[in-house]
């Protein structure tokens, strides 16, 4: 059977092949490829999908504005609220005026400028906490999910201990205990990260376990891939999507949590500016002068909303079942 010359195996073979590929090849190399110059992967598909979602575009614009606001607040206001000389006690709780759009707060400082400068800390804390939880929780989840066995059992039980701690209460405890250590706003980041990493851990672990039992992981092993190569080269890329989604949604939550902690007096401390702190300061005279409370509260809501909307859009785009 093997000795007989197959009458040019290439001839009949390639001929019969063409119909086999025909139904698949053209759509894949057709319209979409020409437009984007790239083949359709999970990520390019998701991007393609996201660009058509008004919710995504809207939240992206909002987040872009907020980011610019936190890096270059002076673009939005000429007043530097960190400079005490811009405050004037005699004008405390003054309503909106030409130079002071949002009016003045209890200490006579400009509410608009303080709100703008407050974005920086909120975003910084939100983004840092998200990165830390995604990296720490993600990495541990990846290891636990890949290794399984005792590693998995021990780390899963540890996360359950953390899950049992009420978020705000735990954060209150941590920030109140370490507030004098000179960590500044980073104490908030640490407190939130310590309590929030188990969620990323669980999601990554679950996604890795799903990916681990798939044939391509066994195939990778059979083709000589090392343990670390399988972990980072095969499992991570297949398991990272849900972590990205949850992290984006969580980012909004962290910003809200920071505001809550600052409001309670254990988060960001004066003279640093934070929306939560501004809300707390304005609370006592809210009935006389509502604006110093309303403006930071509105900014806070919009920011949290923007990130949650972005997370929702990303989730929809990455989850083909929801399409």
């Amino acid at each position: 059977m093997s000795d007989t010359p197959q009458a040019g195996p290439a001839g009949p073979d390639t001929q019969t092949l063409t119909p086999e590929t025909a139904p698949v090849a053209p759509p894949s190399r057709g319209r979409r490829r020409k437009k984007e110059g790239k083949p359709a992967s999970l990520w390019t598909d998701a991007w393609h999908d996201l660009r058509r979602r008004p919710m995504f575009i809207f939240s992206l614009v909002l987040i872009a504005i907020l980011l610019i606001m936190s890096f270059w607040p002076s673009l939005f206001t000429s007043i530097n609220p960190l400079d005490a000389r811009t405050c004037d006690l005699s004008t405390a709780r003054q309503g909106p005026s030409a130079g002071h759009l949002f009016g003045r707060d209890n200490l006579g400082c400009d509410v608009y400028a303080r709100t703008i400068y407050g974005a920086g800390n909120s975003i910084l804390i939100g983004v840092s906490t998200t990165i830390i939880t995604a990296v720490v929780g993600g990495l541990l989840g990846l290891i636990a999910g890949t290794r399984g066995g005792l590693t998995d059992t021990v780390s899963s039980r540890v996360t359950e201990v953390f899950f049992a701690i009420p978020q705000i209460l735990g954060a209150l405890l941590i920030t109140a205990t370490f507030r004098d250590k000179g960590l500044g706003i980073w104490i908030v980041v640490i407190a939130l990260s310590v309590l929030a990493w188990p969620m990323t851990f669980r999601i990554m672990r679950a996604a890795v376990i799903t990916a681990r039992s798939q044939d391509f992981v066994i195939a990778a092993r059979a083709l000589g891939a090392s343990q670390s190569r399988i972990m980072f080269g095969h499992l991570l890329p297949n398991a990272i999507a849900p972590v990205i989604v949850v992290s984006t949604i969580n980012l909004g939550g962290f910003i809200a949590a920071e505001a809550a902690l600052s409001f309670l007096g254990v988060g960001v401390q004066s003279p640093d500016i934070s929306w939560g702190l501004m809300i707390a300061d304005a609370r006592s005279r809210f009935l006389e002068a509502p604006l110093p409370l309303v403006f930071p509260a509105v900014f806070l809501s919009i920011t949290v909303l923007a990130f949650i909307m972005m997370g929702d859009a990303v989730r929809d785009a990455l989850d083909p079942k929801l399409r």
Partner: peptide, 25 residues
């Protein structure tokens, strides 16, 4: 053993779709 796998003894699987990593070209 890892040195042998893939380089000296290799394997192909029943269902190639699930044996290929979906996220890479």
């Amino acid at each position: 053993r890892t040195q042998v796998r893939g380089q000296r003894i290799s394997m192909i699987f029943q269902d190639a779709l699930s044996a290929l990593n979906p996220v890479f070209t």
